[in-house]
Design a protein around this nucleic acid. Structure first.
Lengths: 235, 235
DNA sequence: CGAACAATTGATCCTCATCAAACCTTGTGG
DNA sequence: CCACAAGGTTTGATGAGGATCAATTGTTCG
């Protein structure tokens, strides 16, 4: 039990949202988290569920996605350990989650009640400041992606998506290269295209020696070339 | 002079960002605004300028847009009186504006220094709470627009953009219909398409009696039909 | 009236979505 | 350990939706 508490503290301390808080605030957070485990493919919450909890991922990977009325999925962001999701819960009660949170592998998250966090924020303004900063960063990312999807062709957008993923979740391999774990489908839904087009582009990149591909896997062997595709320094 | 102060107060009190503040906070805000007037086509600030001020529009109309490396423009949002823009200034100093703020007609805005607002927020948490809520609303809007641009065809997206504009800036005419003031070019840049396509679609809508069009002008005569296009209840 | 700028329209072409079918990879149970 | 099922991936053929370019027309304002 003591070990578990310690491990929560480690996650809490690594979380952007919880930087620069007063010791008493961290204490409170460490005392009260709900811990939820969700197996691969399961959901922490669905779109439009009442947003009662704010989550911080402690293990695994999660995709946040919206569903269109006709069933198409659009991925808004990927969550890796240490990142907050479901942040809308910290605003006024009675809100709904704007997206679903589905796990890509067996995952675990800490969760706190929105009411509780609002009380905490009232005593420690750093919490609001951090939240504001995260929200702002997220606005900028969505603006950038909106601009991309409106102005760039698919290959460029996929390059940007891959580079973004590499930065957030990439694993440097001993034998060189940066490995991403993502299916063609999810890559397509992140870039606003179809699995077919994503597959064709990856095949072409592999032919050119920019990446190696595998099932739900992708290794970047020539990041420099990828950047130059992303920046449209070709054609 | 007294009248000017009163008119600032009116704008301040109408601003979402400044709701539910302590009287002392409002007092402080009313005492200190910079007032900037910018004529049609001018800029309150450019993209990447250092973000020193947060603005509230008191008169006119402003478009927030990003420029791509190759000079294409993408419109992120339209600002009407009472709305805040350049909010990034309230975060840590040294940030840059992520978009340019260009006027569509002669405009006036109140501005406050970011440092000053941060001090104010330290004494009146309602300011942070409001800011958080605005940021969140804006995240949701950008997510919705991202989803649209990825999943919907151009006609649908233009319908959505027109309906959004109608809600924000539409003017109900005596002779019936809701008037928007926007050029084909700006409508295209809001919907992620080209002026040519926007023009063709408006012409078709006019033929079908859904809108009347004019130079930098658009009157919705059949909103119901427009909604059904936006929701893809056709074809 | 003429200049500047906004809008329209036609012709053409290109990117990418769609559909269908086959192929490959991984994990499971006999 | 092999065979099979399930699900991810590839590939080809086709066509639709819009972008692009060029030329013309319309509108506003000094």
């Amino acid at each position: 039990m003591y070990n578990m508490r310690v491990s929560y503290l480690a996650t809490i301390q690594q979380t952007n949202l919880f930087q620069n808080l007063q010791p008493a605030t961290l204490e409170q957070l460490a005392r009260n988290p709900l811990v939820r485990s969700v197996e691969e493919g399961g959901f922490f919450f669905m779109q439009d569920d009442p947003a009662r909890f704010l989550y911080v991922l402690s293990a695994g990977r999660v995709k946040m996605s919206q569903l269109t009325p006709d069933g198409q999925q659009v991925i808004m962001r990927m969550i890796v350990p240490g990142q907050m999701f479901g942040g809308v819960a910290i605003l006024a009660a009675g809100q709904a989650y704007p997206a679903a949170a589905q796990t890509l592998e067996d995952s675990q998250a800490l969760a706190w009640d929105g009411d509780f966090l609002r009380q905490l924020a009232a005593h420690d303004p750093a919490l609001s400041v951090n939240m504001l900063q995260l929200m702002h960063a997220y606005v900028e990312e969505m603006q950038a992606r909106f601009r991309e999807v409106v102005t760039e062709r698919v290959e460029q957008r996929i390059a940007n998506a891959v580079l973004r993923l590499a930065q957030q979740t990439g694993l440097r391999l001993q034998e060189g290269g940066i490995q991403l774990l993502i299916s063609r489908q999810d890559l397509a839904e992140t870039s606003g295209t179809t699995m077919y087009t994503a597959s064709r582009i990856l095949t072409e990149w592999e032919r050119r020696g920019i990446v190696k591909t595998g099932r739900e896997r992708l290794v970047i062997t020539n990041p420099h070339e990828l950047v130059s595709i992303a920046e449209n320094l070709e054609r």
